[in-house]
Design a protein around this nucleic acid. Sequence first.
DNA 1: GTCTATACTACGATAGAC
DNA 2: GTCTATCGTAGTATAGAC
Lengths: 212, 212
Amino acid sequence: MLQHRLLEIAIAEFAAKGLEGASTRGIAAAAGTAMSSITYHYGGKEGLYLAAADYIAAQAGEEMAPAFDHGDLPAALAPGEARSRIHGIVRQFIETMAGERSAAWSLFIMREQMAPTEAFERIYGGLMGKMLETLCELVCTATGRDDRDTARIVVITLIGQVIVLRASRATVLKLMRRGTIDAAATATLAARIAANTDAILDRLIAECQEIS
Amino acid sequence: MLQHRLLEIAIAEFAAKGLEGASTRGIAAAAGTAMSSITYHYGGKEGLYLAAADYIAAQAGEEMAPAFDHGDLPAALAPGEARSRIHGIVRQFIETMAGERSAAWSLFIMREQMAPTEAFERIYGGLMGKMLETLCELVCTATGRDDRDTARIVVITLIGQVIVLRASRATVLKLMRRGTIDAAATATLAARIAANTDAILDRLIAECQEIS
DNA sequence: GTCTATACTACGATAGAC
DNA sequence: GTCTATCGTAGTATAGAC
């Protein structure tokens, strides 16, 4: 049995139905194997769930890494360069959140955030934490403002604009009077979010100048 | 048996564990009644779930209504007045999303958005739709820009900044290095979101002037 | 209307054959 | 390692007493 195939099916089931809603029988059947193989390989449903979380952290890390892993530290960048890095990360994040390919990942993570278990620690520790901390540093550099508390809140609002595309997908589709978010819609959304990001960062710079 | 008490317990259970995760036995036991009373009153678990959705739509509507139900149409307002209405709605939305009092409601709705059933239609139709459409109109009036498509996308990003506080609560708490979001933190977040909202609207106005 | 008792189904875990 | 068979538990639904 190909383990990654079982994990991918497990992620899809957990994403669609949640930890309690998904059944090991169903997952095993979809993977064309016996349910007891889950017990054998992962020790049970819980173990499978945690393995799925690790798999997501690894896969998503691979997908997002090129957008923010440039080797040099954010603090060493020019403000304009930091800002363009922010745009790059946000853009990649939109692709990940809006795209159907990783729908299962993002749904899995969303569910996990609502009732966090150990799986959340693994995902946060594996990828999300690094992305968010990097964004904080970049916001500080881009605005020339060394206030981490404010930067963190700004980062939260920035990712909120993206998160909503997945977390409130049903609302977004209804409001936009669409059935799906295709490439064109993604581009429109990305353009608006980029404009908002610039507006938010510019305001942060303006606030800073007012103070000094 | 007090029906609204059973519904409140049901909402809490559904919010915490999801439709499949929650058990009718558990809900009935917590409400101090027999499980079969759920069958009698609601026809089963599904019926209870839908009744819970209706209850949420009614209660949340009552809570949010004062913020956006002023009688007169958004189109008749001055831009500044429209903007202050937007701030009022967003602020009320933050209180609702950040507060622990309505945690069960928002979690219920969040879960529903991930795998929408008929319950979502009821909630959207009862309250959320009206709030979003009102926001769209207000954005148009506040920016003097009669472009509904853009306004809708802006509204999505505006509520995204708020939604993230609940949908990604676990991430927000980790990033802010907190255990809870208390009144002070809520105020800080609200201030930032208000500043972002102004920045976004101002940019929208600036874009409009560039074109003309 | 509300509760008790029960039927039926599906789940996760485990033991054991191969 | 993988599968089959089975156990105990927990779920919903239903019938019937009161």
